[in-house]
């Protein structure tokens, strides 16, 4: 079986399975369910946009999908492993190996140059220096920043910073790239470039989840999941997703 891009995918290749996931916040005497029992699957090599207004629970969902947070109840299987029962250090390891984050505010370390920023996940993985440099340089090359490696974030434009962040997300070859409003701090043109870059990564086989509240950004994805009041309101193929629907009609 091949996907729309002709890349082979495994059967039953649900990379992410979440079942009845809830998240409860207790503030003083008030209890607030940010997520009210969400279930969904995301397959390998999908490109999903999670949409919703602020306060809808989409950030909470993203934090759980990104293993930054654990659900109050319910299960989250990532690559077949039940993440919802892991402790802080196990989650850190999962984040390191399985997830690449791209943030709205880039979240680069200001005192480190681009190369070192990209190298950092490999440091935490425990990779020897020579290998780290090679991998990080390759990742920066892949996002078109081969001549900006020694620049610090404040010497780079917004678009370049986001490319560094994408290179950092890619460098450890993660299962998912999780982008939270990746174009939120960029002008339209640069935003388009970043979206194109994510598109290419998806075509190369990366699974991408973006969180956004902008409809036209979401339309870059194949599938759109709309969240409202802590629940899934809609889950459908985007225009683009319909255009390149899988040949077997799935």
């Amino acid at each position: 079986m091949n996907n729309a891009n002709g890349i082979p995918v495994e059967e039953s290749s649900n990379l992410i399975q979440i079942r009845n996931v809830t998240k409860l916040y207790v503030m003083g005497s008030e209890e607030l369910y940010a997520l009210k029992g969400i279930s969904m699957n995301i397959a390998r090599n999908e490109y999903v946009a999670i949409m919703g207004p602020s306060g809808s629970g989409k950030s909470t969902l993203m934090n759980i999908l990104g293993c930054l947070d654990t659900p109050t109840s319910g299960d989250y299987f990532l690559n077949g492993k039940n993440v919802s029962e892991m402790d802080d250090d196990e989650l850190a390891e999962i984040r390191n190996k399985e997830i690449g984050f791209v943030f709205q505010t880039f979240n680069l370390l200001p005192r480190s140059n681009a190369l070192h920023n990209v190298e950092l996940p490999l440091v935490y993985k425990g990779m020897p220096k020579a290998d780290r440099i090679e991998r990080a340089e390759q990742a920066l090359f892949d996002v078109g920043l081969q001549d900006r490696m020694k620049h610090k974030p404040n010497e780079l434009s917004g678009g370049q910073r986001q490319r560094v962040a994408i290179a950092r997300a890619l460098v450890n070859d993660p299962s998912i790239i999780l982008a939270d409003e990746p174009t939120g701090n960029l002008d339209t043109k640069t935003g388009q470039e970043i979206m194109e870059l994510l598109e290419q990564l998806n075509l190369k086989g990366n699974t991408i989840i973006i969180v956004t509240h902008e409809e036209d950004i979401a339309q870059h994805a194949r599938r759109i999941v709309k969240i409202r009041d802590g629940d899934i309101e809609a889950d459908y193929l985007s225009k683009r997703g319909k255009e390149i629907q899988r040949p077997d009609g799935e």
Binding site: G66, L68, D88, D89, A92, E93, R95, N96, K97, F101, N107, L108, L109, L120, P121, Y124, K125, R168, N172
Partner: peptide
């Protein structure tokens, strides 16, 4: 604090 958050997000353990 932010830096700690970033480091943790990309895989730094408590010990680190």
């Amino acid at each position: 604090t932010k830096e700690i958050g970033i480091r943790k997000a990309i895989g730094a353990k408590r010990r680190t």
